[in-house]
């Protein structure tokens, strides 16, 4: 679980009372995930650093307003995500759409990559290349989806915490999370399909897209193997 959501040692009372040592501990506890979130959303180290600094300056100024309705960490993340998206709007106004990721799930992109790559040996998922690919795939997501995915699946927030941290409804979080996960599944399927081919162990492959090099099965063969008995 995330160090941010579950950090029982910090005292909100001490922070509110102006305890500087406690504030320094607070900064160290949260600066990692806040910086990573900003870096992911903005894709620029200097911008991420600016967001990091602004977040803690605002948190310090507004500590007195924290009422404990949400957890302290989601309150801090709300400040950070506001800062990050504000800066993103300034830097790349074309990238931030209010509507992005909010369409109904009925409008969901249907899965295109239908290859079962779960059977790959575990070491295949542990290579540096594989990890780098996973990392790169996140950056392909639209910022609105990325923020939800990072908090929920990387930092380990619950749906409710993610909603509070991003000032979204839980329904919007779920919609965006689904969309992000489906998009990442597509990306990973393309990558691991290649690994399957390299190994020549393409069991249970069903190539729906008929792209070059694909080994689309004959319909009758497919029927024979997976048709209901």
């Amino acid at each position: 679980m995330s160090e941010a959501v579950h950090n029982p040692e910090l005292s909100v009372e001490a922070l509110k009372a102006g305890d500087r040592a406690e504030f320094a501990r607070f900064v160290d506890a949260y600066s990692g995930p806040i910086y990573r979130l900003a870096l992911r959303i903005l894709g620029d180290a200097q911008d991420a650093e600016d967001v990091l600094q602004e977040t803690f300056i605002k948190a310090y100024r507004h500590l007195g307003e924290f009422e404990g309705r949400s957890s302290f960490s989601t309150w801090l993340y709300r400040i950070a995500s506001n800062e990050a998206f504000m800066l993103l709007r300034r830097r790349h106004p074309e990238m931030v759409s209010v509507e992005e990721g909010t369409q109904t799930p009925d409008g969901e992109q249907e899965p295109l990559q239908i290859v079962d790559w779960c059977c790959l040996p575990e070491e295949e998922f542990l290579t540096a290349e594989s990890r780098a690919y996973l990392d790169k795939a996140i950056d392909q997501l639209a910022p609105a989806l990325k923020a939800v995915f990072l908090l929920r699946d990387i930092e380990g927030f619950s749906v409710r915490e993610t909603a509070e941290a991003l000032s979204l409804s839980e329904a919007a979080v779920k919609t965006r999370l689904l969309r992000a996960r489906l998009q990442l599944r597509e990306q990973l399927s393309i990558y691991y399909d290649e690994r399957l081919r390299e190994r020549g162990t393409g069991t249970r492959e069903i190539h729906a897209n008929g792209r070059e090099g694909g080994i689309a099965r004959e319909p009758e063969k497919y029927e024979k193997e997976v048709g209901p008995s």
Partner: peptide, 13 residues
């Protein structure tokens, strides 16, 4: 659940 199959003309049974 196989939109590409239709797009590319590859029919998947």
């Amino acid at each position: 659940l196989a939109g590409a199959a239709q797009a590319s003309g590859t029919r998947v049974a």
